[in-house]
Simulated assay, not measured.
Amino acid sequence: MSKGANWSGIFPAVTTKFTADDRLDVAEMERCFALQLDAGVHGLIVCGSLGEASTLEPDEKIEVLKTALRVAGGKVPVLLTVVEGSTRRAQALAEAGAKAGAEGFMVLPGVPYKSDSSETMAHYRAVAKAGGLPVMIYNNPVSYGVDITPTMLGELAADPLFVAIKESSDDVRRVTQIFNAVGDRFQVFTGVDNLALESLAVGAVGWVAGLVCAFPAETVAIYELARQGRMAEALAIYRWFQPLLDLDVSSRLVQNIKLVEALVTNSNDRCRAPRLPLVGEDRARVEAIVEKAMANRPKLPAAKLAAE
């Protein structure tokens, strides 16, 4: 069985940090990635949408990957996101990522083109073959216009490299539909922050999270409590977290989450153009949400939840 078959838990989709002169800020990424590991996350995913993949050069993506691998030190799997406009470029990135030490990939369709089902599955099969490592299929029809349906997953299930799915259709019913279609063939992760507990309650085994970048301990606590059946405790934290989690479901999720990181973890909110940090009313709104959350931040259960 591949190592990837055992993926579960909290997998932060980490942000990419930049210096004031728009270079990769490796030292700040090392610090921020370490905060995630210290809080007990179960994996790291680099260079995704939240990681500003569309603005990164291929060599930068590999450098971010190597930074995360160095921080993880083999303690948790590190996945490289593969999102390219052509299958050829996606294959090249998968090959480079495998050579650099990635332990798996989170793969998107060949956006921005809206491929049909046969094109989509051909893209996934080609990228998986090129990388030769376990793949988490990322389904986000809301953002990318391509829906990887339970029927399509049934066809992809024949390839053992496909081991997980990040389900971000914004419809929690899809989790149950996946299980009904393919059983437990795939490790199902939720990819929508403000549907996370609902998804875990109906069988998802993991959460590809965004606000975890600023609140790793709270995110891990929700997952561990839900896993142990302590739903009332998980729900109390989740309800507190909800206004922050809503910031993930936005066209400006990068700017939102980077600002929350800056306010909570003393990082910075620098983005790569054309994105710019939030200003004016948009910035004030996020600052108010964070201020209220920090004033009412819940006390978490024992740190070693998994051991209880």
Rank of each mutant, 00 (worst) to 15 (best):
A201E: 10
G191T: 11
E224F: 06
M231G: 09
K61R: 15
D170W: 07
S251L: 13
L79F: 08
G132F: 10
G145N: 06
G4L: 01
G210V: 10
G101D: 13
V41Q: 00
L161M: 04
K299C: 04
S169E: 11
E287H: 02
E155K: 13
A68C: 11
G73K: 13
K114C: 12
T219A: 12
I62P: 06
C47A: 15
W7D: 03
P298V: 11
F241K: 02
T15C: 15
A303R: 14
N256V: 12
A307Y: 08
V142H: 06
R275L: 15
R285H: 11
A94G: 11
I257E: 09
C32I: 13
E281W: 00
A122Y: 07
C271W: 00
K66L: 09
G191K: 07
L244S: 10
R70M: 03
A96D: 14
V41R: 01
G85M: 12
A284R: 09
G48V: 04
I148F: 02
V249Y: 07
M231W: 15
D193R: 02
C32H: 14
M106K: 03
A204Q: 00
K258P: 14
L93P: 14
V260P: 00
A209P: 12
I257T: 15
E233T: 13
F33G: 03
E291I: 01
V82G: 01
V46K: 00
R89P: 03
Y138M: 08
M29C: 08
V182M: 02
P301T: 12
A217H: 10
R185P: 02
L305Q: 15
T67I: 09
A204D: 07
A293K: 01
S118D: 14
R283H: 04
A130R: 01
L305Y: 06
L235E: 13
E30M: 02
Y238M: 04
I257M: 05
D159H: 06
A98E: 07
R23E: 14
A164Y: 07
A232F: 01
P216G: 08
A196R: 06
L200H: 01
P77Q: 02
